[in-house]
Amino acid sequence: MGLLDSFFDWLGFGKREVNVLVVGLDNSGKSSLLNYLRPRETQTDFIAPTVGFNLEHFVCKGLSFTAFDMSGQSRYRTLWGNYYRTTNGIIFVVDSSDKTRILVAREELQQLLSHPDISSRNIPIVFFANKMDIRDALSDVGVSSALGLDGVTNKSWHICSSNALKGEGVADGIEWLSSAIKSSLDQARR
């Protein structure tokens, strides 16, 4: 079975469908990040604050991603919990230049990790320390310590600094996520 699957993968058929959830505070750059992952011709220059959520599709490393671009405004944050059950991976975007609210991001992360649909499963999480181009932004290490990522032991996670407008660092994070999702799916099959 596994041999046949990898053969199909290699051929490019039967791409496995995976769902990922894109979360983070408002104005952290979630929609911009997904906008960068779109094909060149459909990208937009103007990103408005998301209301509710948007769906985006992209392909990476033989996985077909369906990304739920959640709204980060505080009144919509309760919606995040509805999508935890079906998700295979989480993209957590942090505005590394907003030092006021890094604590709020940490609080939201704690809530996400303690949710019953998340805490029981090994879901890979990729953190984007976004807006690294802004002058006094925190580094990825700074964001990692501010979010208290050392305490996250039962999940595979990865952090990379990014600039969603220019696309720097975005591909790295998504590639890591694809491989992490693949390995977690393989693990689940065995």
Binding site: T100, L103, V104
Partner: peptide, 15 residues
Amino acid sequence: TTAATDTKSKWLSAH
């Protein structure tokens, strides 16, 4: 910034 936030408190000590 106090990293250790009281879980019971309704407030995050941001600064």
